[in-house]
Design a protein around this nucleic acid. Structure first.
Lengths: 344, 344
DNA sequence: TTGTAGGCGTTATCAA
DNA sequence: TTGATAACGCCTACAA
């Protein structure tokens, strides 16, 4: 492909009988250049339609004004909102973002990290894939001298900057709310327990049961129920129990909660009278189900902004090895009709 | 910030008493290097944890293996699906994507374009903002020797590669379907008419009315009704008419259609018996409203893949000025209960 | 205030 | 098959 040659600082310099370094200084607009020549340079730069070559600049300066982001799926509400939040801040700071998706595969996650390292990004922001196994690849990022911020799904044993939801407390609150509404046999839909966030949500559930002296029943805790379909299957199982639950906390996602609701409607079980439901994530559809779903808002957009701000304010100019900062965004229980037995 | 120095090809060369150019050749793994030395080089590269510096490589090669994407909002279902589709392909080709959002602002769109041009991306993929005014900034991209692919919301007068839905035909089909279901006073919720896709959707609506010899009524066409709230307001107005519509085609979005449904429910108007509804975009929630919404699937993920494939197969190695390719992805009418009066 | 020169890490060309 | 060298476009000591 033949590209029309771009104008460089040399072209500007030549036209004005100046040296390229003067042009560089003028365009950086901080150093010592006489006002006259600076104006002249800026004027001809515009005339010649000069666009700075960031690649060259980055190579010279040894850094890329870019933040790399790795998420399981770009087109999942939660993650796209986090990304949008990050972008809002990075844009103001004239940083770029490069986005990769791991597709919930550890293997691809490793490859994504490699790409970003090769691109010399200044910082990598990551939420790990579901089949997260080891954290060597993340350690390697730090070893390469690249900043690392983990969010949401984090490697618990790796001491890095993190932006988290207090997911255990939120789960505790949700289950406590169900109990206070008069539900006493509360089932749990669990996510993959290799991810700490799902372990924490389970811990919150157990904590609430203990707090209210309710029995802990293994039959009521269903593993890996984190899609609508798996939520449906789990619900079928639960409702077929000799002693079925009177409420289900879909700690994995609102999609699972939707699965619960679907099965309840199919079986003509009244929600919330006969079955209470609580989901997780405050997906937009939870408002419009019938009845609307109680759920937990994670403030994904705010998390994104927190991640970016953490980088610019606390991390950017520090050494890799110092001071890990943990930011906690408090999630919020959104109480809707699907769990309000008392109100009926 | 003090970075631990990365290993370069020189480090490898020094260790092996070779020249950097040999190392470069070995790593590029195509040119003429003896197998023995190549193996040696690859081995020590791994030992020294060598990571290629893509920035330097890109500078030297005068091209960035990166595609820049500009969309109104990252966290809108349609766009995040398109992006996910693009990423699937670019990832295989070892390209990166840089994503910017214009936030529906023309001003920010121009700035995004500039950033991407400065980053020397190989190609810019764009869907314009709602207050799209001029296409100078897009023309400028081409003038800079950067490939341009427009999708969905395109500048109609700018002759570039485009990936489109045949939105007029889809609208025509949708309205024809409503007519065939027995609705005869069909209202239209319009999007901003400065965007060609919304003009086309209106054209499809008018085409269907003409085809079936139905009168065209200005009162039934509501401008700028493209959010849930605006959809609600528009519906209130329409239902207050002396001669209200018996169906509403929310050509702008499913969110607007949801607004229609909300107002209908509030007024105890039965859907689809008394009011037919059709939305646009096949958002995930349309399946679970009560009744489920008839809508149009745009195959956003497929569009994303088509965009990326178009670039790699048709554009990448050609000159900017030659052969504009237009790819049409046929959208599909998804018929659900909200428009099926006949079935009742 | 301006000019000179060297280098960031690669790759491409030419010569050996 | 390998080595030497220049160049991609920019920035920054240092000298003038």
């Amino acid at each position: 492909m033949i590209l029309p040659k771009r104008t460089t600082i040399y072209d500007i310099a030549k036209k004005l009988n100046l040296n390229a370094s003067s042009v560089s200084r003028a365009l950086a607009n901080n150093s010592n250049v006489s006002e006259a020549t600076r104006d002249l340079i800026l004027k001809t730069a515009k005339e010649l339609n000069y666009k700075p070559n960031r690649i060259a600049s980055n190579l010279r300066k040894g850094q890329n004004q870019t933040i790399g982001i790795v998420v399981p799926r770009i087109n999942q509400n939660y993650f796209s909102n986090v990304i949008a939040g990050i972008e809002e801040i990075t844009y103001q700071k004239r940083y770029n973002i490069i986005i990769c998706q791991s597709n919930e595969s550890y293997q691809k996650e490793v490859e994504c990290i490699n790409t970003l390292v090769n691109q010399q990004v200044s910082c990598i922001v990551i939420s790990t894939s579901a089949d997260f196994a080891k954290d060597d690849h993340l350690q390697a990022v730090l070893d390469q001298g690249i900043h690392l911020v983990q969010f949401d799904r984090v490697a618990p044993n790796l001491d890095t900057h993190k932006v988290l939801n207090d997911t255990q407390e939120a789960s505790m609150e949700a289950v406590s709310h169900l109990i206070n509404q008069g539900y006493h046999r509360i089932a749990l839909l669990e996510g993959p327990q290799n991810l700490s966030i799902f372990r924490e949500r389970k811990a919150g559930y157990l904590e609430a049961l203990r707090k209210y002296n309710l029995p802990i029943n293994e039959d009521l805790m269903i593993e890996n129920a984190w899609t609508k379909e798996l939520g449906e299957k789990a619900t079928e199982m639960l409702l077929d129990l000799p002693n079925p639950p009177d409420a289900i906390f879909a700690s994995t996602s609102d999609f699972a909660a939707l699965g619960v609701l679907t099965v309840a409607q199919k079986r003509n079980i009244k929600v919330p009278q006969q079955l209470g439901i609580c989901g997780y994530a405050n997906e937009s559809f939870t408002e419009i189900t019938n009845p609307p779903l109680t759920t937990i808002d994670q403030f994904s957009n705010k998390m994104g902004k927190a991640i970016a701000n953490l980088y610019f304010e606390e991390i950017k100019n520090k050494q890799i090895s110092t001071s890990r900062k943990i930011v906690n965004i408090k999630p919020e229980l959104i109480i809707r009709a699907s769990s309000q037995k008392n109100k009926i």
